[in-house]
């Protein structure tokens, strides 16, 4: 039996939500009482495991814990309780272009962004042609990022992020913001990853895309898993839960 690519056992993530900021020494010294804080539970006792090569969608309304889940998987947050095991290299397409600098050129940003995502400089150099081709920057590679359109910044971010060659790929609602041809390219790339046997976890509000890409879906609501099963079942249950207008 192969080991699961992703395993969550009873994972809870809570944040301290304080009323009134308490991050100056003055307020710390002046407040004799502790600041009024409550615990905000973003994920509540979530357990599931994902087999290698499986594409799983995570759906749910805003604030249901989807992004917290992806950040936990991407090792940005540590769980409050419970255990997370991710086997292999993880790459997150959480938000494209995180860490891009407006004053650096496209090429300089490729190296910086790649390094932030954990690529060695020589790995980037080796894959530079691929990156440049995918990003379609053309003559803009040598101009500062601040002269780019939003679409160009996104393409640049995506083309670097897919070079990480992860075993587990996390995608958070990044594709939906691009135009038609860009989206098509992204789904093509996702298809390639699927063929290569990568594990993909995909967060989206675009339920059509979810059904096209994923075979399994997890519906989160209020930080709890409502349905975890075939993508059609989860999407159907989720749709049924949304009160329709009129």
């Amino acid at each position: 039996m192969t080991k699961a690519a992703v395993e969550l056992s009873s994972v809870t993530k809570s944040f301290k939500l304080c009323h009134g900021r308490n991050n100056s020494l003055k307020s710390l010294a002046l407040s004799f009482r502790r600041p009024r804080c409550e615990e905000l539970v973003a994920l509540d006792n979530v357990s599931f495991s994902i087999d290698p090569g499986q594409t799983t969608a995570v759906i749910g309304r805003n604030g249901s814990g989807k992004s917290t889940l992806l950040r936990l998987l991407g090792n940005v947050f540590k769980p409050t309780r419970g255990k997370i095991v991710v086997r292999g290299r993880v790459s997150a397409l959480l938000e494209l272009g995180a860490g891009l600098h407006p004053d650096l050129t496209g090429l300089e940003n490729i190296y910086l962004n790649g390094a932030i995502l954990g690529l060695r400089t020589r790995e980037i150099r080796r894959r530079l042609d691929d990156i440049l081709e995918f990003s379609e920057l053309g003559k803009f590679v040598d101009t500062p990022l601040r002269s780019y359109s939003n679409g160009m910044v996104m393409r640049l971010g995506f083309s670097v992020a897919v070079q990480v060659d992860p075993d587990v790929l996390l995608i958070d609602e990044v594709i939906a913001v691009g135009d038609e041809p860009f989206q098509e390219k992204c789904y093509e790339k996702i298809g390639e990853f699927q063929k290569a046997g990568k594990t993909i976890i995909f967060v989206s509000h675009d339920l059509q895309a979810v059904q096209k890409v994923a075979s399994r879906a997890i519906w989160l609501s209020g930080g709890r898993v409502m349905v975890d099963g075939m993508v059609e079942d989860a999407v159907w249950a989720y749709m049924a839960s949304i009160p329709r207008e009129g």
């Binding site: 600098h101 300089e108 190296y111 910086l112 390094a115 954990g118 690529l119 400089t121």
Partner: peptide, 22 residues
């Protein structure tokens, strides 16, 4: 140490951005 190239890239960025346009 595994991320040493990131440190290098951040240093390069800092030096480049500091003296840009002058």
């Amino acid at each position: 140490y595994k991320y040493r190239d990131l440190v290098a890239q951040l240093v390069i960025r800092d030096l480049k951005v500091r003296y840009k346009n002058s």
